[in-house]
Design a protein around this nucleic acid. Sequence first.
DNA 1: AGTACCACCTGACGGC
DNA 2: TGCCGTCAGGTGGTAC
Length: 258
Amino acid sequence: MPELPDVEVFRRYLDSTALHQKISSVEIRKERLLEDVSPDDFKKSVEGNEFSSSHRHGKHLFARLNSGSSVVLHFGMTGELKYYKDPADEPDHARVVFHFDNGYHLGYDNMRMLGKVALTDEIDEYVENEGLGPDAGRLSFEEFKDLLDGKRGMIKSAFMDQSLLAGMGNIFSDETLFQAGIHPKRQVGNLSEKDVETLYEKMMEVIEKAVVCQVSDFPDYFLINYRDEDAECPRCDGEIEKIKVSSRSTYFCPKCQK
DNA sequence: AGTACCACCTGACGGC
DNA sequence: TGCCGTCAGGTGGTAC
């Protein structure tokens, strides 16, 4: 699930549920999800604190503690957050659970465990050490143009490259390319100035719309509703095709994406 | 530098 | 019903 829009929705969810409440304890149910910190140290740094604010960079969510450190959450392919009171409402794969003084719990659920949970004193430093590019949602057109300048290879690969720009994944890269009418395998070097402009505008639009609809009930003209081989293209009378691009499933319309 | 493939994990689904 | 292969919205390492 989680690409930039999903994680932004998680961030807002965290803000509206779990801020400003004392964390009485944390349960680490899968130690392997912790990155560069022992369960003991993690617990010591978190317990007794409150989450005071949040930040998102690409697909990484940072939950700041009032101590100044931040809990880092990365969701892999199957992660999500759930805030609940009744233990019966605990999600099926809660790998890390924050327990609050008010009786509620925040579960970091992650079936496939491809994500990670970490701790950092400096968000900027963490982002830099991870080698992440600028956040795709907070990027000016000039910055976007500069990123692509001199890049080679396929445009979809560029979108997916977290070190180039952070946040776009498989689904929303396909979506942006579809909305822009550009073939996922187009070489970056072959894009016209107009193409680059369209890509930027559509990327921003796709991100914004996806966040506004909370990553469900997407607008009808979104490709995401038609990720099926042989589905009808929502923009023309073509048929959606499925191919592999950098070994990821890619859906596009050969008729309106050139 | 770019790409292709494997690995890490778990679960759902379709075919036989 | 059961087994098996395939696939899934991410990423890191490795080898061409």
